[in-house]
């Protein structure tokens, strides 16, 4: 029998703790596949956030660290500056990167740190029980916006990738989604490119924002969640390449 699909070695052979329909499992697999395809496992160091992906080191078989909430870009700076030959990536959620860690991501990009950032945007705080994230869309009901997010007092959803695009130190920014196989394939290409830039020594920060489903805290079935990304989330967070200095 011919093997047409198998687990990539850097993805550990174990069940994850993620909810049914969660996007983290897909994103983890993409990262693992890319690390194996690029042959960089032995020189890659990953940074797990505080959030649902805090246990990413249980699933990704590379050297990994778990760090304070929001600080992965600062930790990555410390690692990359002292180990320019290593490939450093951070894997961060929207609470981690777009709320508590806004200063760290902006300044890492501002300094042009040569790191790869995978930013999982699911428009909600998952780990703590579905509270409003900076990326929560208007009208979205969460544990802390029981009447739906209201722009008065709660603000508009924060478009972090667009913010970062203004910084010369951010050299590659792309927003992708996991809502169907074609988009997943695009996401993989984007993340791979973000790693390749670092391998090539491109002078700046590469970030891929990934719209990812959270059926549990969106209070939807997994299928409905995928549809909601396509219909609602992409309206606020349009997909596509925001910036690619090398490709321009």
């Amino acid at each position: 029998m011919k093997t047409v699909f198998k687990r990539t070695p850097t993805l550990k052979d174990c069940p994850t703790h993620y909810c049914p329909g969660c996007g983290h499992g897909i994103a983890h697999r993409l990262v693992a596949e890319i690390i194996d395809e690029l042959g960089i496992r032995s020189r890659t160091i990953g940074i797990a956030p505080v959030g649902c992906a805090v246990l990413a080191y249980d699933y990704l078989d590379v050297d990994m660290i778990e760090v304070p909430h929001g600080r992965p870009p600062a930790v990555a700076t410390g690692m990359k500056r002292t180990n320019p030959d290593k490939i450093i990536f951070s894997y961060q959620g929207d609470g981690d990167l777009a709320a508590i860690g806004t200063a760290e991501i902006i300044h890492a990009a501002h300094r042009g740190e040569q790191i790869t950032v995978i930013f999982i945007n699911n428009a909600v705080f998952g780990m703590t029980g579905g509270q409003m994230a900076p990326t929560t869309v208007l009208g979205q009901v969460t544990a802390t916006t029981p009447k739906g997010r209201n722009r008065t007092g709660e603000g508009y959803p924060l478009q972090i990738s667009e913010l970062l695009a203004a910084l010369p130190g951010a050299i590659y920014l792309e927003r992708c989604s996991l809502h169907n196989p074609a988009q997943i394939s695009k996401t993989k290409k984007a993340i791979k490119h973000a790693f390749e830039l670092q391998i090539e020594g491109a002078e700046g920060l590469a970030l891929v924002e990934v719209l990812s489903p959270c059926p549990t805290y969106w209070r939807m079935t997994p299928v409905k969640a995928m549809e909601w990304i396509e219909k609602e989330m992409t309206k606020v967070f349009p997909l596509g390449r925001l910036k690619d200095v090398a490709g321009e």
Binding site: I47, P68, R71, A74, A76, M79, A103
Partner: peptide
Amino acid sequence: RVFVQSESELAAINMVFGASAT
């Protein structure tokens, strides 16, 4: 060797955290 002026003390200690972990 490496010198970085960080954006805050919070970032500085986390840069130490990262470098030390390696």
